[in-house]
């Protein structure tokens, strides 16, 4: 098989081009968001948040059919309800935020699975959960472009607020920063991106496109700006190779993107010259 067959030929198919474009667009915004998720230790919360989108999407499907906008809004509402609901629960009861989030999201997810079992039989729950690159429509692409562009623009404009809020929220507030606003905006962006990534990645695997490039970049960088850029770069690399892998091996697109990113992550975690496992084992052994 020639390099052309391997790397270029697959993109003679329209659905492959769409899938690639969608994954790369969301790789840009996901790579950015992932950095904040990782640095603020919200990785698991992001995971819970992604599961909680399901009932919103399923309900929108039941009510409005396949309209991209309806699915998007349904997912957004479900995600924000979970985020707000758990914030309220943790403030008004003795439940801590993680338990509140954990309980709410699993209820939402259960409701989502129940709802999808009521959907017309042609529809596959697996496509919701794990993504199907074949299904990326032109509307989905526009949505991905809007969400990705919006996220990147917000990061560019509010870069300093985001850095302060991520690194030292107390200092941010003490110097007049709108910490709560930045945080809520960040949660909203995360939900938007998760919903936009649903078609290609599936709601369960979408977070992989956010987290894996960011953790990998975290292992290499000593500056916030370079971590953001490397994270975007790795997300683009992983999604391109992931889409190709899914084509050649006949795998689900979301899964193969996550696998490619996972390989990058594994290599980083083991062999990063400053923060890798091999280095700390080596130094431990010498000492």
């Amino acid at each position: 098989m020639s390099p052309h067959d391997l790397l270029i030929a697959p993109f003679s198919y329209e659905f492959m081009r769409r899938g690639l474009l969608s994954a790369m667009l969301l790789g840009v915004s996901g790579g950015l968001l992932g950095c904040v998720l990782v640095l603020r230790r919200l990785a698991l919360m992001g995971d819970a948040l992604s599961h909680s989108l399901l009932p919103g999407i399923a309900a929108a499907w039941l009510l409005f059919g396949t309209s991209t906008v309806a699915l998007f809004l349904g997912g957004l509402i479900a995600g924000l309800l979970t985020a707000l609901g758990s914030a309220l629960l943790s403030r008004l009861t003795r439940i801590k935020e993680d338990a509140a989030f954990g309980s709410l999201f699993i209820v939402f997810f259960g409701a989502g699975v129940a709802l999808t079992s009521k959907l017309p039989t042609r529809l596959n729950l697996a496509d919701f959960l794990f993504g199907n690159v074949l299904g990326v429509s032109a509307a989905d692409l526009w949505l991905a472009a809007a969400v990705s562009g919006g996220t990147a623009a917000l990061f560019a404009v509010f870069y300093r607020s985001i850095l302060l809020e991520t690194f030292d929220p107390v200092f941010h507030r003490a110097t007049g920063g709108r910490g709560g606003l930045v945080h809520m905006g960040f949660l909203t962006l995360t939900v938007l991106n998760l919903v936009a990534a649903m078609q290609t990645m599936g709601i369960v695997l979408a977070l992989g496109l956010f987290l894996l490039p960011a953790v990998s970049a975290y292992l290499w960088c000593d500056r916030f700006a370079s971590m953001l850029l490397l994270s975007i770069g790795l997300a683009l690399l992983g999604s391109a190779f992931g889409i190709l892998l899914s084509f050649h091996a006949g795998l689900a697109s979301g899964a193969s993107i996550v696998l490619c990113l996972g390989l990058i992550f594994l290599v980083s975690a083991l062999f990063s010259p400053r923060y890798g496992a091999v280095r700390s084992l080596w130094r431990g052994g010498v000492r």
């Binding site: 300093r160 302060l164 030292d168 107390v170 000593d222 500056r223 971590m227």
Partner: peptide
């Protein structure tokens, strides 16, 4: 203002100059 140090994540990808620039 100088916040309490236990709130700081010392593994954050930032340099001393980066902190002072804040």
């Amino acid at each position: 203002y100088v916040p309490q140090r236990h709130a700081i994540d010392w593994d954050f990808p930032i340099t001393v100059r980066g902190v002072v620039e804040q």
